[in-house]
């Protein structure tokens, strides 16, 4: 059981990276982004491209930080994946959502457009890479460490948790310390007043997409390191990240973080009683439960 909780924390940190971006987009851009899971997939595959094609092509040496399963190539691929998806998210806003906003389309139409975008991204990945399951580094033995309380954990998983926490701290500092970060919080608080104050809300929206896309990409890469890559991986994360977002109250970044851990732990612990394929249904049931008893989430006001 303790082991499952530990695995849940690892999975939860990946869910949290998706949920934080989702919750920010939800609050600041103002709609439910159904393409957020595909940002995760996109990140994972961009990193795959960099690790297996781009860097070998320029002759970048293969290395491995034993006992981790990856090396310098991944260290380079990771930020590239985040940046590419961040740019993709901004581009999507400019060519799609911005046009719809300009037409005064409601949030539901934007959500529908994002559903379309999610299929477009997924299909593009399927066209390029096909539908196989892929490892960043196939055929590698990945032994687990023995921790106290008979917990077995792979070094990669410890890295995943640390990387996620590192990114969250970075985001926290950005929001608390920088002018743009404060302006983002101000816009999330009260968009009309932000406009009156002279904050250029379109710029804030672009930043929001960049951060949301980047974090989602990071989550996707980490999942790829932990398990494997598949074009449907992001879609399978969609329900868990929405559940985490709602659990932590829409718009609340720290709520999304906690929601991510709760959902991740619940999903892993459920495998003690249910077939692992039901993980997604577990996240869904928790979400329905919250909607019934506290739809505003744990941090929401009445």
């Amino acid at each position: 059981m303790i082991e499952l909780i530990v695995y849940g924390i690892v999975l939860g940190s990946i869910i949290a990276l998706g949920a934080i971006g989702l919750t920010m987009v939800y609050r600041i851009v103002g709609f439910a982004n159904f393409a957020h899971g595909e940002f995760m997939t996109g990140g994972a595959y961009v990193a795959l491209f960099v690790v297996t094609i781009l860097l070998p092509w320029i002759g970048f040496p293969d290395s491995r930080f034993v006992p981790l399963s990856f090396g310098w190539r991944m260290v380079i691929a990771f930020p590239i994946a985040m940046a590419v998806v961040a740019i993709l998210a901004i581009a999507l806003d400019k060519i799609l959502y911005k046009k719809l906003r300009a037409k005064k389309s409601g949030p539901v139409i934007l959500a529908m457009a994002s559903l379309g975008a999610s299929f477009i991204i997924r299909m593009t990945i399927l066209i390029i890479w096909g539908s196989d399951y892929i490892f960043y580094r196939p055929g590698l033995m990945r032994p687990a460490l023995d921790l106290p309380l008979s917990v077995k954990i792979r070094p990669d998983q410890i890295f995943i948790f640390c990387a996620a926490i590192f990114l969250v701290i970075l985001l926290h500092l950005f929001l608390k310390r920088t002018k743009m970060g404060k302006a983002m919080r101000a816009t999330a608080d009260n968009t009309d007043l932000a406009l009156v104050t002279g904050i250029d809300t379109e710029r804030i929206i672009a930043w929001t997409w960049a951060i949301g896309g980047g974090l989602a990409a990071a989550g996707g890469v980490l999942y790829g390191i932990d398990v494997q890559l598949h074009p449907g991986m992001g879609w399978n994360f969609l329900i868990p990240i929405f559940a985490a977002t709602i659990l932590g109250s829409i718009g609340n970044i720290y709520g999304a973080l906690i929601g991510g851990f709760v959902i991740g732990i619940a999903q892993q612990v459920s495998t003690a009683f249910l077939a692992p394929t039901y993980k997604l249904a577990v996240a869904f049931m928790i979400m329905i439960l919250i909607l019934l008893i506290r739809p505003q989430g744990i941090f929401g006001k009445e």
């Binding site: 709609f31 439910a32 969609l238 929405f242 997604l280 019934l292």
Partner: peptide, 20 residues
């Protein structure tokens, strides 16, 4: 659980039920 809430909650819930 969803029809009293905002319109996107129904979307997420129906998506979830379909997958489930």
């Amino acid at each position: 659980p969803t029809l009293r809430l905002g319109e996107d909650y129904l979307a997420i819930a129906t998506l979830g039920i379909a997958e489930t």
